[in-house]
């Protein structure tokens, strides 16, 4: 019975080919440092899952953002756990992505033929920091409010177009409900889409070129 179902699916989806090309592909001997990339991907998925749960209760408005998070922490079943994982997951993700970059740098894995993989990877690092920056404002507490005030001010120091960037980030001259709304939109739609797209390209390139081997005296 199962064999029949599998055969039917395989005929249409090409499961055997997928298995051969994706799962059973040969790789150079790896070590634990090679798990950092998949750890980053795992954290991204975990952040996505906990983030989606948080949006069920979170309200992106200055009047309700803070209270909705207090509600998640105190009254929602396991809300504290979901928020706690999302909060610490952000920290851990920045750390893991950064160490992943260092590992690739130290083993010089960014060299031919993996140059594009590196460039996309730096895009992923920047997008991850962007997630941290936009997510930091969402709790709408003192720390968040003033850190974002200063952070956007720094962007405003760019010569000539600083004023424009500042207003575009804040949605006006001051931090307001508009800022919170656009940071929320950036945090749950724009940046995750950018991240997902870049991750797709990153993975494709890794499968295409294979994981690099640990360099020895020969290299």
């Amino acid at each position: 019975m199962w064999k029949k179902i599998f055969a039917w699916l395989d005929e249409r989806l090409g499961l055997n080919d997928l298995q051969k090309n994706l799962l059973e592909r040969p790789e150079p001997k790896g070590n634990w440092w090679n798990t950092l990339g998949s750890a980053s991907l795992f954290l991204f998925i975990l952040q996505g899952a906990t983030g989606i749960f948080l949006t069920v209760y979170y309200t992106p408005s200055p009047d309700h953002a803070y209270d909705s998070i207090t509600y998640i922490m105190n009254d929602v079943a396991f809300g504290w756990l979901i928020r706690g994982i999302h909060h610490w997951g952000a920290t851990l993700m920045v750390l893991v992505v950064f160490i992943h970059m260092l590992r690739v740098f130290v083993t010089a894995s960014y060299k031919y033929p993996r140059e594009l993989t590196w460039i996309i990877g730096i895009g992923l690092l920047i997008a991850t920091l962007g997630m941290g920056f936009t997510g930091y404002l969402l709790p709408w507490n003192q720390r968040a409010f003033w850190a974002t005030t200063v952070g956007t001010e720094i962007a405003g120091a760019v010569p000539f177009i600083g004023e424009f960037i500042l207003k575009a980030l804040r949605g006006g001259t001051d931090l307001s409900a508009l800022t919170l709304q656009r940071f929320f939109s950036g945090h749950i739609w724009m940046l995750p889409l950018v991240l997902a797209g870049l991750i797709g390209a990153h993975l494709y390139l890794i499968i295409r070129h294979g994981e690099s081997h640990w360099p020895t005296k020969e290299d």
Binding site: K29, T35, F42, G84, L92
Partner: peptide, 29 residues
């Protein structure tokens, strides 16, 4: 002279993912 993604690498990846999950649950708790 290498190994295979499945099951060699993915085994290590899964252990790290499990470790991170436990770490996060401990931190949150």
């Amino acid at each position: 002279k290498g190994e295979f993604f499945w099951p060699d690498s993915i085994f290590k990846d899964a252990i790290v993912a499990l470790g991170l999950t436990i770490l996060l649950i401990l931190l949150a708790t």
